[in-house]
Write a protein that binds this DNA or RNA. Structure first.
Length: 490
RNA sequence: GCUCCGUUGGUGUAGCCCGGCCAAUCAUUCGGGCCUUUCGAGCCUGUGACCUGGGUUCAAAUCCCAGACGGAGCACCA
């Protein structure tokens, strides 16, 4: 019944020219200026999946070449590697661009000697005007020796920020103004936060650094966003000078994620955290990887949803519901059931010949896991929305049928036909005396309520299902008899 | 202003290169039903899309032209 060819259950399009390469090798090139938001998961998800599919590999390269405007956070390097692992992938190698300045300098020197670059002291504004008119600037015809000595001066820190740049000589009359003589190196006065790199002041721009590294690290396929759609064309000039072959490139559009009120941007999230509006990167309201992880969403669920978005150049929206659908399938079988009453109505007194205890199953599909044993005591709590009209019946799940009589619930038997044929609703409940205070943190705001007594024994990190409420991850058992959980999804 | 790119149901996607088997695939969402002492799952079932206008052709989602709409770049950010 399997197709004879291959297990071709992938939804990703074939990589271009992947048959011609012995080993597909890709790269993940994050900027370590913060933990990842959900959209960032797309790159490792798709690259990792391709690597598996083609029996290739990928490397992680931190493109941390701007110590000022995209200043790296030192702890974000390991954080990001940890997130890659959470998503289920393992890089073959890890590089940091800030460790490789000497390599970039060496290539810049080569490029200068080949006549492919020149130092320029035009202001950005001046150059921009010239460039838009397809006019060369006065520095363009400088001889390589002069350029080389000025570049060495840049490296040696003899210029201030803004005073001098190194430009790649492309085609000043190229019909696309974005490709004309772009900047390869500039001076940044702010020291890099990494000790290993804090003495450098002359930094390569992304197009130079990334172009050189892709070649040197043997990258065969690049996937990147449409915001970088001109990068390959820019870098091609450098590749031509060095007589290198450019990797295959796939561009894709931006991802948006629905369901969140917070804008999905590292800098915005960081500002909200600093302003105290979010508790941290893993606040349930934050559209970040640490957040969904804390809620108990498996990396695999996120990866599958991302892979299904494909690699189209249009912008796409990721529906969190599809992540939830994936996750539900992964966790449902292992999630023990509990009752959790949110913001309860005032207690009802139990009257009549009710049983001594209720015995709902730990998991309805797994009888072998046994039952929970809940002593209802003399009073029970139910949710406000579940309170029946006076005189009407309700079925307390695992316990029995009850008829409301004012502030009392009077036992009305255990004949299930009341539910099956007479339309009595089945609801969850907790004993008022022994229920355990539980705080549920969720995207829409925190909810306080009471869980059944046995929930106090649930282990941190365990995934549970609160019946009729949804899945949640047990975060911690506080000393003051309160349990904190993070809501995952219905 | 210059230069790229895109437009298939609510969402995402397949098909488009090499026109016919496409009254258009798959997933999710949504509606209805069955089952069920929750939710979920499972089973059955339904709604729902080729941006517009021309052209080529026996035949166009697929090719051509024009337009609309959307996105991106033209940074000493990545």
């Amino acid at each position: 019944m399997e197709s004879e060819d291959e297990e071709d259950d992938t939804v990703l399009p074939d990589l271009p020219n992947a048959e011609d390469t012995d080993d597909v090798r890709m790269r993940l090139a994050p900027n370590p200026n913060g933990p990842w938001h959900i959209g960032h998961a797309r790159m490792p998800a798709v690259i990792g999946t391709y690597a598996e599919e083609y029996d290739g590999e990928f490397i992680v390269r931190f493109d941390d070449t701007d110590p000022e405007t995209k200043r790296p956070l030192l702890w974000a390097y390991d954080e990001i590697l940890d997130e890659v692992e959470y998503l289920g992938f393992e890089p073959a190698e890890v590089y940091k661009a800030s460790d490789r300045l000497e390599t970039y300098y060496d290539h810049a020197r080569d490029l200068i000697e080949k006549g492919g670059a020149y130092t320029c002291s035009c202001s950005g504004e001046t150059f921009s005007e010239l460039k838009n008119d397809a006019e060369p600037c006065p520095h363009r015809d400088k001889d390589p020796e002069t350029t080389l000595s000025e570049f060495e001066a840049m490296v040696d820190g003899e210029y201030e920020s803004g005073e001098k740049v190194l430009r790649v000589k492309t085609d000043i009359e190229h019909k696309n103004p974005a490709l004309r003589d772009w900047v390869a190196f500039r001076i940044i006065d702010t020291p890099h936060p990494r000790e290993a790199a804090d003495q450098y002041r002359c930094w390569p721009m992304l197009d130079f650094q990334s172009g050189v590294d892709d070649h040197l690290t043997g990258v065969t396929h690049i996937i990147r966003g449409i915001d970088l759609q001109d990068s390959a064309k820019r870098q091609q000039f450098v590749y031509d000078y060095f007589d290198w072959e450019y990797p295959e490139v796939v561009h894709w559009g931006h991802v948006q994620v629905d369901e969140y009120d917070v804008k999905m941007s590292t800098s915005t999230i960081r500002e909200l955290i600093e302003a105290g509006e979010l508790d941290g990167w893993d606040d349930p309201r934050a559209p970040t990887i640490p957040s969904v992880r804390r809620r108990g969403i498996r990396g695999e669920a996120l990866v599958d949803a991302m892979v299904q978005l494909g690699t189209s150049t249009s912008n796409v929206d990721l529906a969190m519901s599809s992540v939830y659908a994936n996750n539900r399938e992964l966790i449902d079988d292992g999630a023990d059931r509990y009752f959790f009453v949110r913001e309860p109505h005032e207690d009802f007194t139990v009257t009549g010949n009710a049983p001594d205890a209720a015995h709902p199953p730990v998991h309805p599909d797994h009888e072998e896991r046994g039952t929970r044993d809940i002593d209802p005591g003399s009073r029970v709590r139910i949710e406000e929305a579940d309170v029946p009209e006076d005189g009407e019946r309700i079925w307390l799940k695992g316990f029995g049928c009850f008829r409301r009589d004012g502030t009392k619930l009077d036992y009305a038997g255990d004949d299930i036909t009341a539910v099956r044929e007479e339309g009595v609703d089945v609801i969850h409940w907790v004993p008022a005396d022994s229920a355990t205070l539980t705080q549920m943190r969720k995207k829409e705001g925190d909810v306080v309520g009471y869980a059944e007594p046995g929930f106090r024994e649930a282990e941190p990190d365990e995934m549970v299902q609160f019946e009729r409420v949804g899945f949640a991850r047990v975060d911690r058992q506080e000393a003051d008899d309160e349990t904190v959980v993070y809501f995952a999804h219905k």
